[in-house]
Amino acid sequence: MIELTVNGATHRVDVDPATPLLYVLRNELALNGAKFGCGMGQCGACTVLVDDRPVFSCLYPVSSTAGRRVRTVEGFGTPEKPGPLQQAFIDRQAVQCGYCIAGMIVRAQALLERVAHPTEQQIREHMNPNLCRCGTHMRILDAIRAVAATGELHRAGEKGPAS
């Protein structure tokens, strides 16, 4: 049995310790946010936060979560009470097919928690690992900028590692 903490709740799952976290999140915990896109860390659809750092859950052994906090897009808000980035994506209708969007929101969250007001270049570089095929990029950037302008996700006093 492996114990893991996702969005604040602790779960025990009976899986091979090398199983990628993505499959555990989707199948054992029935969370839809992280998506299977490539299984090779090339597209970012599966992005989740582990101890506040964005990781490709498709390449993250579930055993690596021991003692760490996993957060997925489900942990940022609900349809009734969306989180700041979720609300910004809704306000700007930053979705087409939407398959990449949860991963986008999660990766952006990591940046905005660490950097209060990132520059345009910082945002684009930070989002580089995540692919969108519908061409919703303009709106995704716009939504991230909007939250960046408020700085509301920034964790004051917390100085994240340089990247």
Binding site: L59, S64, N128
Partner: peptide, 23 residues
Amino acid sequence: PWPSHPKPTAYMPAFADNLTDDQ
């Protein structure tokens, strides 16, 4: 890392955040 502009490449993700030292 990815090259700065799209072109065929040999990419590999970084595992520093994914794997512990022991792993």
